[in-house]
């Protein structure tokens, strides 16, 4: 028997093969953008910061899950660290991750003037934006949804009766996923809006940090002076935390505080900011000559 030999012509030829559906191109954009933001296929140095923050975001959940394994008679993980408390602990990390990875999803391509390539021969501005929103959601889920899931799955696996725990805690899966996505969507919207406003990454990071660090101080100050807890709803770094506190089982965020804004108000702020962010993105990219 002789082995078959094939000759391949590697010279340029016309392409008459299949074309995939447009949503596959949107996914390709999302995948590529996510990889670049994480420093994949780039130097080792560009991977350090994002992966450091992702690791830091998972540490509290891993530590909480590990405690009952190390110490007999220790409380259950979800008693030690309820979901809302975990989100509160994660907030500084989430803010740092959002500020340093999300704006560059848009600023880099504006700076390099790649948009004319994309919009002339590759995809429409709306497909481009859809890909970027998916990428931002995927990135933020790594530091919001993923730690919550680690805590949920870890608490089930480390319980004395995992099957019973699966039955009891398993019903919270949807609530945990929803809460993680609410947080991810919030920071994705803010990060992309900052990135859409300028081609300079540092300006976008500065703007986003200013919004997320100044609003807590201002809202807290005004709330104290006026004795109006509702003003705290303007603390943009805590909006997703306050919005999801009733969604998640266990002790909620701000439960022990002197006062907290009404849930309806918090959700109104969440919706209004998302609407504003969407409007900014659409206005910024509706002109194909945005490059």
């Amino acid at each position: 028997m002789t082995a078959e030999a094939h000759l391949y012509d590697i010279r340029y030829s016309r392409y008459d093969g299949a074309r995939e559906a447009r949503w596959r191109s949107v996914l390709a954009m999302a995948r590529s953008s996510t990889g670049r933001a994480l420093g994949l296929r780039r130097t080792a140095g560009s991977k350090v910061w994002p992966f450091l923050l992702i690791a830091a975001a998972h540490l509290p959940a891993i530590a909480t899950v590990g405690v009952p394994l190390l110490f007999d008679g220790a409380p259950e993980p979800l008693e030690l660290m309820p979901y809302s408390q975990l989100l509160a602990v994660l907030t500084p990390i989430v803010v740092a991750f959002a500020a340093t990875t999300l704006p560059s999803l848009l600023t880099r391509e504006r700076r390099d003037r790649v948009l004319s390539l994309y919009f002339s021969t590759a995809m429409s501005p709306w497909e481009y934006l859809a890909g970027k929103v998916l990428a931002a959601l995927a990135l933020m889920s790594l530091v919001t949804l993923s730690p919550l899931l680690v805590l949920l799955i870890g608490s089930i696996l480390t319980s004395e009766a995992p099957l019973d725990a699966l039955r009891d805690d398993g019903r919270h899966v949807l609530a945990v996923i929803l809460a993680g996505l609410v947080c991810a969507l919030w920071f994705a919207a803010l990060g992309l809006t900052a990135g859409a406003m300028t081609s300079k990454r540092l300006f976008a990071i500065g703007g986003l940090l200013a919004v997320l660090l100044v609003t807590p101080v201002l809202s807290g100050l005004v709330s104290s002076l006026t004795d109006q807890p509702s003003v705290r709803a303007a603390d943009l770094s805590q909006v997703p935390l306050r919005a999801t506190t009733d969604l998640l089982p266990g002790r909620g965020y701000d439960d022990e505080g002197s006062g907290k804004p009404a849930q309806a108000l918090v959700w109104s702020v969440w919706g209004a900011v998302l609407l504003a962010a969407t409007t900014v993105l659409v206005l910024r990219y509706r002109d194909p000559d945005a490059s």
Partner: peptide, 13 residues
Amino acid sequence: IHLARLRGLPRRD
């Protein structure tokens, strides 16, 4: 590869 994917070509192509 990136631009070919955005223009709808399957990964292998």
